[in-house]
Write a protein that binds this DNA or RNA. Sequence first.
RNA 1: AGGCCGAUGGUGUAAUGGUAACACUACUGGUUUUGGUCCAGUCAUUUGGGGUUCGAAUCCCUAUCGGCCUGCCA
Length: 554
Amino acid sequence: MSESKEKPIDFVRQMVAADVAAGKHDGRVQTRFPPEPNGYLQIGHAKAICLNFEIAREFKGLCNLRFDDTNPEKESEEFVQAIEDDIRWLGFEWAKVCFASDYFEQLFDWACQLIESGDAYVDDLSFDEMREYRGSITAPGKASPYRERPAAESLDLFKRMRAGEFADGEKVLRAKIDMAHPNMNMRDPVMYRIKRMHHHRVGDAWCIYPSYDFTHGQSDSLEQVTHSLCSLEFEDHRPLYDWFIEKLGIFPSKQTEFARLNLTYTVVSKRKLRTLVEGGYVSGWDDPRLPTLRGMRRRGYPAEAIRNFCATVGVTKVPSTSDVALLEHAVREVLNRTASRRMAVLNPLEVELTNWPEDEVIEVEGVNNPEDPDAGTRKIPFAKRLLIEQEDFREEANRKFFRLKLDGEVRLRGAYIIKCDSIEKDADGKVTKLLCSVDLDTLNKNPEDRKVKGVIHWVSAAHAIEAPVRLFDRLFSEEKPEADKAVEFTEFVNPDSLEEGIAYCEPSLAGIEAGTTCQFERVGYFCADSELSKPGQPVFNRTVGLRDTWAKKN
RNA sequence: AGGCCGAUGGUGUAAUGGUAACACUACUGGUUUUGGUCCAGUCAUUUGGGGUUCGAAUCCCUAUCGGCCUGCCA
């Protein structure tokens, strides 16, 4: 609807637009998001998801979800469900859900075809021998002694591989390309391996499984994918991707690579996330400190914020590391206009209003969201004994501190102006209680004779509900925990990434629904944890703090 | 070391042979019953060298730096 700060068009979209303009594939655009169901989605996947689904939408095309399930060793139905769930939460719906395993029979036929045409052969070399024969980055490889075996023999062997006549690893099917090719992927890559393992979808129907390289491009082709977008590390695979398509004479999907997303103060690779989970550094794949979709969701990051973030980091071929501040800004931007305001005190200091009647309780009105008049108001109880934030009081301070000090005045948000007349201390000299007087003529109005600049949040001590809060900090203390290859990244895990405490909340917070995020005024955004909250007893996660230009300077 | 890819403020991107711009960050001020939001402003950029051109971030050469590649993972 509303419109157009013309967004910069990334190189992928430019290419797609050019293809459409040239009438390629009759102007049809089709993409796909191709996860392997062996783990949970993270922020880097979100970038790929947004790219693929949004391009399909922008060019009035289709985007499928396809599971690249060619390695039963690590894959499971559980991950299939979780991935579907995460993509929907992010805000996308696929045209079709597909599985590479649905193409196994077709892939097998194609493999036979390549054997017959002399483009593939069965190899008996062992794993170690094959590595030896492959050569190295600087030295050419050499031909396997089985490379020239007659096609008929390879075909027979391949069929017997499928029939289960050989042990795991005893033989493989290889493409016959060029053992001296400078691109290692072209040195007769493996197309099929023998692996007796139960597959989450095809069960025990197969004991041979196709490799990624012999599956991915053909799957794209079968689905009529026009633009196959993947990350940079597959650049070297593109010649092979094209080789299979050409040899088979099938629909020419085109692969284009872009840089994956990296973030400061975190890690995103599946292997490293797994290390954090299995090493007990975090509580699970949905730990709110993790950049997994489930973690971020639980922490309270809105899906819209993640989509916006992906749009601002853009799509290029430059390997880069985005500042988490960019992500946090996207989160605040959405939450500022959508989150309901509430008051809660994290480090309480008691305030007694000396001129307020002992039993009098009134209700003041709180604005739910100054950014959104439609959000309405709520009632907040106000009584003689209150709780304020310890850091909002100083016995003495200079004029730049415009919160409460002894003999000073401050506005209680949504209520009255109070003056601190005296304080009580314990034996250690710690301030334990503030005795204040209320200016009764300041509810919803400012005094005419003076200006009171400070405003602090508060809750009524007798009405406050206590809720556990979990204050998260960055998971790593190092900006690029992976940068030093000599040091294991877990060395940089921030020991203080989780701080637990109690929030003294205004009563309305008891009714917050799990999974919703609100702003604790002057403190930050907090999400009622979806796992730990019980009806009437929320547990809060700090989604992100408010920008705090005061704290930074002090 | 061989192949492929890449290099624009602190970070992420734009400019596609014609005035280097946007967002974030940082900093200054203003508004404000959130030291939030909002508004105004400041600092700061084309990796080095050569070439082509009236004119180069953009094209060419070269150096340097960075990423990926030697799984029967994807």
